Computed example of a mutant assay.
Amino acid sequence: MTTENTENEKELDPNIIEENANGEQLIVEELSPEEQLQQDLDKEKDKHIRLFAEFENYKKRTAKERIDLFKTANQEVLQSLIPVLDDFDRALAEIKKSEDEALIKGVELIHEKLKSTLVSKGLEEVEVRAGDAFNADYAEAITQIPAPSDKLKGKIVDVIEKGYKLGDKIIRFPKVVIGQ
């Protein structure tokens, strides 16, 4: 076919012959102006719907990220206060050995105020006790000792250091001794 014949065929035939990227000839129907406008409108509606859905997903994702950020924004501050809380627990244990009831009561009040403030900021203690089954996802074993009884084999014998979590995230694992 020559170029001249192809152009004549386009004029005579309501179909238009186009070549695709592979060089193949395709026959495409010529659309009326109304049909072309409707097709363009449908394409634009589809683009709009997809863009709107993408934007909604973006808003949801950023809102979730913002909530997560607010939950853990004070993580560094709380992590730096955990050793202070540990020292306070040890001091309170030693003070309870004294005979001064007023001192014990005052230190207990300050200790409770500190703990309640940290809890209000989202800090929670990870609950592990002697006799619980050891789970590496929630505790860190620092050593193993021969189990004092058969019941304690593979279980927690002693809790050396308390663990804490902020929301659902553990920010310090409890350090435990497990029985062999």
Rank of each mutant, 00 (worst) to 15 (best):
K121Q: 15
A147S: 06
E99F: 05
L81Y: 05
M1T: 11
G167L: 02
S120C: 04
L12G: 06
E34L: 15
E4C: 06
G163F: 01
N15Y: 12
E30Q: 15
T143W: 01
E7W: 08
N15C: 05
E161M: 08
K162G: 05
G163R: 02
T3Q: 14
D40C: 09
K71E: 14
A53F: 11
I82K: 02
V128I: 02
D42Y: 14
A73W: 10
D100K: 04
F55W: 12
V176F: 00
F52H: 15
D87E: 14
P33E: 07
K169P: 09
S149T: 14
K10A: 13
L41P: 08
A141R: 04
D137F: 05
L109R: 14
E29C: 08
A93K: 13
Q144A: 07
I142K: 03
K165F: 00
E11S: 09
H111W: 08
E125L: 07
I156Y: 01
N20W: 00
L123F: 01
E44G: 07
N57G: 13
D132R: 00
V177M: 02
N57T: 10
A73C: 09
E56I: 10
S149M: 04
H111N: 11
K43C: 07
E30M: 07
R66A: 12
V77E: 15
E65V: 09
K115C: 02
E76R: 11
G154D: 04
G167I: 01
L114G: 06
K45L: 13
A141E: 05
A73M: 15
K47P: 07
Q79N: 15
D150L: 08
I156H: 03
A102Y: 09
E56V: 12
I110F: 11
Q25F: 12
I142T: 04
D137S: 09
G122L: 00
K105W: 03
N15E: 10
D132Q: 01
L31S: 07
T62I: 15
I95H: 04
T72I: 08
E11V: 08
V84K: 09
P33I: 04
D89S: 06
A147C: 00
K96W: 04
V159F: 02
L41E: 11
F88T: 12
A147G: 01
K155S: 00
I49M: 11
I145Q: 05
N135Q: 04
A53N: 15
L166S: 02
L103P: 06
L12Y: 10
I17E: 10
E127L: 10
V119Q: 14
T117F: 10
A130G: 13
H111A: 11
R66T: 13
K71C: 05
G106R: 10
E127G: 06
